[in-house]
Design a protein around this nucleic acid. Sequence first.
RNA 1: UGCCGGGUGGUGUAAUGGUAACACUACUGAUUUUGGUUCAGUCAUUCAUGGUUCGAGUCCAUGCCCGGUAGCCA
Length: 574
Amino acid sequence: MSAANSTSDTNTDDSSNRHLNFIEQEIEKDFQLPKLMGKHLSTRFPPEPNGYLHIGHAKSICLNFGLAQKYHGTCNLRFDDTNPSKEEQEYVDSIQNDVHWLGFDWDGLYYASDYFDQLYQWAIDLIKVGKAFVCDLTGDQIREYRGTLTAPGKDSPYRDRSIEENLELFERMKQGQFPDGSRTLRAKIDMSAPNINLRDPVMYRVLRAHHHRTGDKWCIYPMYDWAHGQSDSIEGITHSICTLEFEDHRPLYNWFCENLGIFHPRQIEFARLNLSYTVMSKRKLLQLVKENHVRGWDDPRMPTISGLRRRGYTAESIRSFCDRIGVAKFYSTIDVTVLENSVREHLNQVANRVMVVLRPLKIVLTNYPEGKVEWMEATNNPEDAGAGSRQVPFSRELWIEREDFMEEAPKKFFRLKPGGEVRLRYAYIIKCEEIVKDPETGEITELRCIYDPDTRSGSGPAAERKVKGTIHWVSAQEGVQAEVRLYDRLFLNEDPENAAEGGSFLDNLNPESLEVVTAHCEPALAKAVAGERFQFERLGYFCADEKDFSPQRLVFNRTVGLRDSWTKIQAKDG
RNA sequence: UGCCGGGUGGUGUAAUGGUAACACUACUGAUUUUGGUUCAGUCAUUCAUGGUUCGAGUCCAUGCCCGGUAGCCA
């Protein structure tokens, strides 16, 4: 496979060589075997185009494409489009877009539907050797005949039809002579098998639905089990990596390959990703979208790739997240903070700093000349010397963050308080002299402060005077306004599925997962571009919304807050 | 209750019969014009019982607990 960003190529090799995960161990063993000796690794990522990709898929993508990178093999993208009633072109497009955005490129782009003709031929082959039959049982009857977990099933009365009759009936199924759901083609295996997947599984069902690629050519469609392994086989996939719930299907996967006598890939299963405070099932994500609990698949609160992207996550941070969570067979739940820390770590390196006040409180510097504006030099990114600096306007009237002032402050509160001093970042030390309140409500409307003219940042030793706290600010006159969307977790509950009797995961929805505020920003932000990411100093990481941002209407999304030890101190001191 | 799979610090992941480690979290301290970052340090782990062995997280047995599985979904 070719990596979209080639820098990760060499990294992958030595960083992940320290420990092999269990799949890598199996792969390395397999390539010692005569069957694969001298061949190269081939994997695939096989999404069904019935929804948008989410962070769980990202794990699988990083695994499959990452393996191909590491072992200099190939990785295909294959759409598992065997059920046209659920699948749409919109999803096909978004999936390709998301895989690319994550930084991967596929070697082959395929569709299970590319193989419908071959699959049909193979089905005939199986009929001819007496290993498949046309069954007239209804859905309910099939379930009845299948038996239960503890009781064996019983043979379908149609199981012993002649090969000729099966061939004719199957041909007529294909030609659309039978109504939807009236007949199936089933493999003839063993109705008493302890593994239910082996109790004469359905291979084809009659289904008249318009397929996004094959149109109305087919009115019979293959089931997953009948399509997946053979698709792998056709593409020469050596290792077919899937999630744990397919473990019970492996014997069937193997049975089809063996009985068809075709190249036999090896299926290996791993545990899917679970994240705390998150739902991951496509069905539930679709429900959130359809019932308007969120604003679409790419709502920044969604765990979809497109939602995370819009939230401000970087592809790098998602890849490093997938790296650090590992791969195993143990069913585990990763704390969302691991994801949040991954993006903090990357954005800390690359995001330029700016000053923005989310909840403004006005301060007036009574000893600062009216009308005067000074331009203060501010470092763009202390983690990246190459990022340079910018000028920020300073004046007599400023906005500061409401929570950076406390009238009755506890000892450890290092910000502004009556009679106290604080450093305005990149500017002067100020002292609070007077609080102005609304006579009606008692709400603080303004602070009157004095500044110390000797303390301008960078102006020499006199300016170096130490005060306990430094806060951010925006000049009232020169600042610009922006809509800032403060996103929080979509669910209140660590395990959203854990709802009260008769309830659903929707009961755990966080009613405050989105708060919109009008913020004051330093003027540089008017020149931002959609998708650009920033650190709002002392607040968190934010990005210009990729859809709604324009120079006329500044819209920023909060990706994640900065680590906040002040809240912890407060909580501890009660 | 059949079949399949799994149990290692708070959370994840290693250790492939030979000193139980790495990351994150938590906590403590240092640095800091972001209560951010960075740095240093601390706490903390093999489901249970028995067996094999000089030596067991690893192999064997039994038990316990957890997950998946009875779509003409994937």
